[in-house]
């Protein structure tokens, strides 16, 4: 699923490793979330939002049409 995690992370001047350390996951997981390959749980999404000072909508919201397009 596409998201705006990379933009938010870069704007906070954080590397993937730093963000991963802050939320307690591996760098690969952050990388896969940014690429949209891995769908994180709501718990991890919230942890990321807290660290980056963003809301779930800011980072992960996708319009229904985009969602359907990505699903197919």
């Amino acid at each position: 699923m596409r998201n705006r995690l990379k933009i938010a992370r870069v704007s906070m001047d954080l590397t993937q490793q730093q963000l991963a350390d802050k939320v307690g996951v591996t760098r690969q997981t952050i990388s896969l979330i940014e690429k949209g390959t891995y769908n994180p749980t709501l718990k991890l999404c919230l942890q990321i939002c807290y660290v980056l000072n963003k809301t779930l909508d800011d980072l992960f919201w996708v319009d229904e049409e985009d969602f359907e397009r990505e699903k197919n």
Partner: peptide, 10 residues
């Protein structure tokens, strides 16, 4: 060995 905390790895 460290305990795995990463949900993806779990």
């Amino acid at each position: 060995m460290k305990k795995i905390r990463d949900e993806r790895l779990i």
